[in-house]
Amino acid sequence: MNTATVVGTASMGAKFLGALVLTLKVLIYLFLMVMIGLFLMGIYRKFTARVQYRVGPPIWQPYIDVIKLLSKKDAATKNWVFDLGVIMGLGGPLALLLFLPLDTIVGLNFHTKGDLILILYLAVVGPLGFALAASVGASPWGAIGVGRALSMMLGYELPFILGLLAVVAKDGTLLLQKVSAAQSMWNPAGWHYFQWPLILAAIGAHIALQGVMSEKPFDQAIAPHEIASGIMVEFGGKYLGMMLLMKAASLMAELGLFAVFFLGGTTAWDTIVKIFALFIIAISFDAVLGRFRPDQAFTVLWKWPTIIALLGLLLTVFA
């Protein structure tokens, strides 16, 4: 609708300037989101350390880790397609972030274009990129890791989608902007999370969210004891750094999506606050729970969260 405003009818120079400002805004926005994501991971390590009776690293430890990893001299790669996979892996979530309402932080309005189907299929690009890289890495452990990550994806995708579709059923629209418009920003009563038929869908999706973010008890993909950190087996220096950045970006994206759909995240700041709240809840589960076996996790995910979310959906549609 408003593509015209960007590529205005003004002279060539103004148009070029507009494009430059836009790219700068986009770069700043992505940088900010990744920084907040890394900050979240810093809180995660501090939180789990304190649960485990120890001091734990400083909160800015992930920034140091990323700098160290990106400055490694000769990370091993098998084939240029390995690098392509990693670039695609990081590019996916970054592109996804542009469609979330978080981008009002720098005054962009791409999020008006984002709708649920695009978000769901853009979220797949990141894992697919790293899956390709792990496959090129040709280590059997890498293949098992990817196999588990994809099985888990099949596992948590069903309840998560059912939950989101319940919201789409209630608001009758796929556009994120309209969904957040249908909810109030700060008053919990206005959030979909606490409205009657939707609370079931929200609970189902919330359990699945634990799998989406691959926190325990559904973190089979990188289970160190069983498959030596699965997918990340062949990722050295800068490839591991880019994977950390991807983890940070997708953390913001997944939690942002959930916040928009169930907690009414409209502008950037309130969504970030809600993301923090969701993150604290998630890591408190992660700190104390164990890890299911892949088939147990799949059965658990396709049983209780799916039933609850389906109930929520059916009640919304028919009641």
């Binding site: 485990q52 009776y53 700190a287």
Partner: peptide, 15 residues
């Protein structure tokens, strides 16, 4: 504890 993923058990027991 490490095998099952309950890391607090590992940390407390060694501590």
């Amino acid at each position: 504890g490490g095998g099952v993923g309950v890391y607090p058990l590992t940390q407390w027991a060694f501590g």
